[in-house]
Amino acid sequence: MAKQTMLLTGGSGMVGRNILEHTWAGAWTILAPGSRELDLTDARATTDYVAAHKPDLVIHAAGQVGGIQANMAHPVAFLERNTAMGRNIIMAAYQSGVRNFLNLASTCMYPRAAENPLREEMILTGALEPTNEGYALAKITATRLCQFIRREDNAAQYKTIIPCNLFGRHDKFDPKHSHLLPAIIHKVHLAKQNGETTVEIWGDGTARREFMYAGDLADALMKGASDIDALPELMNCGLGHDHTINAYYETVADVIGWEGTFTHDLSKPVGMKQKLCAIDRQTEWAWSAPTSLRDGIKSTYEFYLNGATT
């Protein structure tokens, strides 16, 4: 039997590369065009590409991503580029008759003041976190577009997965462009390498975050791809528990073997105090993340040491 074709956007990013490395990837013919081959901000080019290849399934994992610093420095790009990419690939797929679509969203879509754990029905019930509002608005738009398509066409399996914060192999480690955990790995590694005795933490370190290993998200996405009918229309994907920022620094230091102390810069922004996903729908779907925090950090640090570019 011929393999089905998957179109994977963002194939060169962390999530995309983890999908390509997944043990089930060989069951598909996977198209993973880079931005030079397919510019998702170009609506005509995106429509033409999807119409020419007619994939059986699209996983939309592309986007302009970054941490607090990047979001605060470039809000126009985070809103405009991500909105364009989401709209263009979703509509290109639908207009070309693609029936199966997995849209990757973000927990930044939840209101800043939402009570934790964050439940899917809370989206659009309050003001967003200002430090990443542009990115959040773009992800909300793509999510709602998938839901509206399903509202008009019951046969369209346009589903959205909302992952918690991610880290892992193929991550970006430069603090100017990275998310929290890879930035911690980079900072603590340099501190050990340079013989430094202190590492600075933004804020008091009591904010809580839920970080899942990217290989585990790839596992959830491949499960969804194999049986998209059973996947909820909108589903958080996470651990169901979180840790303080201080605890992440301490675990990274333990894995790396750095024995210094941490200082806190209370003048720096820290974002939301907590972002913990409710995983009721995920549990009912019968999936849970298999990788422990320490094992995930160890694997990610090994990747970093083996020549990962910052």
Score class of each variant (00 low, 15 high):
residue 105 A to C: 11
residue 103 N to V: 06
residue 116 N to M: 09
residue 69 Q to H: 14
residue 218 A to R: 12
residue 132 N to D: 13
residue 161 I to H: 01
residue 147 Q to N: 01
residue 93 A to Y: 00
residue 125 T to D: 09
residue 29 T to A: 15
residue 150 R to H: 06
residue 203 G to K: 07
residue 32 A to N: 02
residue 287 W to G: 10
residue 150 R to N: 04
residue 191 A to W: 01
residue 96 S to Y: 02
residue 276 L to P: 15
residue 107 T to S: 15
residue 136 A to G: 06
residue 191 A to C: 04
residue 210 E to M: 08
residue 106 S to Q: 07
residue 172 K to F: 05
residue 49 Y to P: 02
residue 218 A to N: 10
residue 232 P to W: 01
residue 74 H to S: 15
residue 224 G to Q: 03
residue 80 E to K: 01
residue 118 L to Q: 11
residue 270 V to P: 05
residue 308 A to K: 08
residue 173 F to L: 11
residue 3 K to F: 02
residue 289 A to G: 11
residue 251 T to E: 13
residue 64 Q to L: 11
residue 47 T to Q: 14
residue 254 D to S: 14
residue 284 E to N: 08
residue 184 I to Y: 04
residue 2 A to R: 12
residue 84 A to L: 09
residue 274 Q to G: 10
residue 128 L to S: 05
residue 125 T to V: 02
residue 222 M to A: 04
residue 252 V to I: 07
residue 12 S to V: 05
residue 279 I to H: 04
residue 137 L to V: 06
residue 2 A to G: 08
residue 223 K to P: 05
residue 75 P to M: 15
residue 195 G to K: 13
residue 158 Y to A: 01
residue 154 N to C: 10
residue 97 G to V: 04
residue 232 P to C: 04
residue 134 G to M: 12
residue 208 R to L: 13
residue 37 E to P: 05
residue 81 R to W: 10
residue 114 A to R: 03
residue 132 N to K: 15
residue 71 N to S: 12
residue 212 M to A: 11
residue 266 L to M: 07
residue 231 L to E: 06
residue 293 L to I: 15
residue 62 A to Q: 07
residue 160 T to D: 03
residue 280 D to A: 04
residue 69 Q to G: 15
residue 74 H to Q: 15
residue 17 R to E: 06
residue 281 R to L: 07
residue 297 I to N: 03
residue 24 W to E: 15
residue 69 Q to E: 10
residue 65 V to L: 12
residue 10 G to M: 04
residue 286 A to E: 14
residue 224 G to W: 02
residue 94 Y to N: 11
residue 65 V to C: 08
residue 234 L to G: 00
residue 123 I to Q: 09
residue 16 G to N: 13
residue 288 S to Q: 15
residue 182 P to A: 06
residue 64 Q to T: 11
residue 310 T to F: 02
residue 14 M to F: 03
residue 55 P to Q: 13
residue 35 S to W: 05
residue 291 T to W: 09
residue 277 C to G: 09
residue 310 T to N: 07
residue 294 R to T: 14
residue 36 R to H: 12
residue 263 T to K: 03
residue 145 L to G: 07
residue 66 G to C: 10
residue 111 P to E: 10
residue 12 S to I: 00
residue 174 D to T: 12
residue 248 Y to D: 13
residue 89 I to N: 03
residue 81 R to K: 14
residue 111 P to C: 10
residue 209 R to T: 09
residue 258 W to C: 02
residue 50 V to I: 09
residue 300 T to Y: 08
residue 194 N to A: 14
residue 232 P to R: 02
residue 38 L to H: 01
residue 240 G to C: 07
residue 293 L to G: 12
residue 249 Y to C: 00
residue 83 T to W: 09
residue 92 A to T: 04
residue 48 D to E: 14
residue 99 R to E: 06
residue 95 Q to V: 12
residue 16 G to C: 05
residue 66 G to R: 10
residue 119 R to E: 15
residue 28 W to E: 10
residue 4 Q to A: 11
residue 276 L to V: 13
residue 194 N to P: 04
residue 77 A to T: 11
residue 102 L to P: 05
residue 244 T to L: 03
residue 169 R to F: 06
residue 237 C to V: 12
residue 296 G to C: 08
residue 34 G to D: 08
residue 283 T to E: 09
residue 19 I to H: 12
residue 291 T to R: 12
residue 235 M to E: 09
residue 117 P to A: 10
residue 183 A to Q: 02
residue 155 A to S: 13
residue 126 G to H: 10
residue 128 L to C: 04
residue 202 W to M: 12
residue 278 A to G: 11
residue 204 D to I: 03
residue 287 W to K: 05
residue 156 A to H: 02
residue 9 T to H: 03
residue 159 K to V: 03
residue 150 R to F: 03
residue 122 M to L: 12
